[in-house]
């Protein structure tokens, strides 16, 4: 068996495990779907309230507020899942007592961590597609100009930029055995300044440089222009370059911190502790 097919089979094992686990909690499964509707309805009524005089910073994208915010919110989950799911999966394995059993296998800790996040990404993708489809079909959002290639490339770059932060955060969780401060800080700042439910130009001028230093701002800007104006990659290279830079830096941080933490815990003997 080749290394690739072995790794594909391991990745599938994690997806299957987490799907079966999630499926076994039936109400939680249904609740996640129901939550999509409530978020859409809130956006829809906000749009009706400001439809008569939409802010110019939104109309600059050639769309209404509902469609503007729909794209931002649909992809906000990718940021949360990238930053939270690695640490959450580690914490859950610590509490459930399955972490040592997984680490006793020849699969490396880095792979265990990466594969553990596959289901959260898959589930987020299902929800994002449902969210956008409902927005278009039930609430009349206009996504006709979408440039699919630009969207996919930006999505991959966004996931890479945030996954590095997420893995570093998981390493800290492994060591501290509790929720870490990285996710809350980066997530909170990104939500406030990342241009998700309002454009960056709506922020005070002094805060706009802060916004443009964040990966979220470039991800949302690129995705929004690819979705709403059909912008090709050639027009979005500056945002893409920032995301790639963030991805490289955060993965360097992640690989270093995870290796260090695994070594320290193996020496201290506290893998099984929670």
């Amino acid at each position: 068996m080749s290394q690739w097919s072995l790794e594909a089979s391991r990745a599938w094992a994690f997806l299957r495990r987490d799907f079966l686990f999630r499926w076994s909690y039936k109400f939680g499964f249904l609740y996640d779907i129901g939550a999509l509707f409530s978020s859409l309805i809130a956006l829809f009524f906000t749009n009706r309230m400001i439809a008569a005089a939409p802010p110019p910073s939104v109309t600059a994208y050639g769309t209404d507020y509902f469609t503007f915010a729909l794209v931002g919110v649909a992809f906000l989950d990718y940021m949360w899942v990238s930053m939270r799911s690695f640490a959450q999966q580690v914490r859950m394995a610590q509490l459930m007592g399955t972490l040592e059993a997984m680490l006793a296998t020849p699969t490396s800790p880095f792979r265990i961590l990466c594969y553990s996040a596959l289901w959260p990404y898959a589930w987020t993708t299902i929800r994002a597609v449902l969210y956008l489809a409902l927005g278009v079909l039930a609430f009349g959002a206009d996504l006709g100009a979408v440039n699919v290639l630009s969207v996919l490339v930006f999505l991959a770059a966004m996931i890479a930029a945030f996954a590095g932060i997420g893995i570093a955060s998981a390493a800290l969780t492994l060591y501290l055995k509790q929720a870490d401060p990285i996710t809350a800080a980066v997530g909170g700042i990104s939500f406030l300044f990342g241009g998700i439910v309002y454009p960056v130009s709506a922020l005070p001028e002094a805060l706009q440089p802060v916004a443009w230093s964040l990966p979220m701002t470039h991800a949302v800007e690129g995705l929004r222009r690819a979705f709403l104006s059909g912008a090709p990659l050639a027009d979005l290279w500056d945002h893409l370059a920032m995301l790639v830079l963030w991805a490289l830096l955060s993965f360097l941080l992640a690989a270093g911190s995870l290796r260090r933490v695994i070594r320290v815990l193996s020496r201290e003997g506290s893998f099984g502790a929670y």
């Binding site: 089979s9 391991r10 599938w12 094992a13 994690f14 299957r16 495990r17 079966l20 686990f21 076994s24 909690y25 459930m96 399955t98 059993a101 997984m102 296998t105 020849p106 699969t107 265990i112």
Partner: peptide, 16 residues
């Protein structure tokens, strides 16, 4: 993984 069956657990750990 207590909410999975014995066979599913072995399938998961066997793949690892």
């Amino acid at each position: 993984f207590l909410r999975l069956s014995g066979r599913e657990n072995l399938r998961f750990f066997g793949t690892l």
